[in-house]
């Protein structure tokens, strides 16, 4: 801190700042996350648009019946969707606990949310590779590079999977911070921001599931 600041002491931070209605009350981090999510929404938008244009241009979907590509199973993935929605609920509960500064509950619900994320990722591995049981889609003949059907499926779902992975790691880091007591004093901004990302990932999945699996 320079001498000039020291001379002026308390005046270097304007006192009346917060009263100014022009500035709102959201923290910089929260605004940044919202803007990032808008931006990220447009990247999903670009990929989903590609899917839409390719599918609209094809005579049938999957486009080439002679490749014998498997149809996507809805039941299993509907389960995964439900899991992700549940993890959004626990996320809300974690945020609520943070508002009340209840460390035990924050940890419990954040851990459940992380578990939801891990569960979804395991489910996706099962779907792709048959990691736990039976054959995955790849072994059944849905090969990346095989057709526009396979290409769009793998690019969009794995791009979303990457988001789930990022979100799970992000929430895990938040969980550790919570264990260390960072959110004890009702300081819930960090959890709210992580929650924004997680709900976004969830919302996007509902769209992806609708477009790719259901329609």
């Amino acid at each position: 801190m320079s001498a000039t600041v020291a001379e002026h002491g308390e005046h270097h931070g304007p006192a009346e700042w917060s009263k100014d209605a022009h500035y709102g009350r959201a923290s910089a981090g929260k605004i940044a996350m919202w803007i990032f999510l808008l931006s990220d929404g447009f990247s999903f938008g670009g990929l989903l648009l590609a899917y839409g244009i390719l599918r609209a241009g094809a005579k049938a979907w999957p486009p080439d019946a002679s490749l014998h590509e498997p149809h996507l199973g809805i039941n299993f993935t509907a389960g995964l969707t439900f899991l992700l929605i549940c993890s959004s609920v626990t996320m809300v509960l974690a945020h609520d606990a943070a508002v009340h500064g209840d460390r035990k509950k924050i940890i419990r619900y954040l851990a459940l949310t992380v578990l939801g994320g891990v569960g979804f990722l395991c489910g996706q591995m099962q779907e792709y590779f048959g990691l736990f049981h039976g054959e995955g889609l790849i072994k059944e003949g849905l090969v990346f590079g095989g057709s526009a059907y396979a290409n769009t499926f793998f690019v969009i779902t794995s791009f979303h999977g990457l988001h789930v992975l990022t979100g799970t790691i992000y929430l895990f880091i938040t969980l550790i911070a919570a264990i260390r007591g960072k959110y004890d004093n009702g300081n819930h901004d960090g959890i709210e921001i992580a929650g924004l990302f997680w709900h976004f990932v969830d919302l996007v999945w509902i769209l992806v599931f609708t477009f790719i699996y259901l329609l």
Partner: peptide, 30 residues
């Protein structure tokens, strides 16, 4: 981000053997 998605798909076409932007005799109806 929309340009980013186009660049991503183009890179996959060039590197990973997909054909988002390739049509016609090179790939067929798929």
């Amino acid at each position: 981000p929309v340009l980013g998605s186009a660049a991503l798909l183009l890179s996959l076409d060039r590197l990973a053997g997909t054909h988002f932007f390739v049509a016609g005799a090179a790939v067929g109806i798929q």
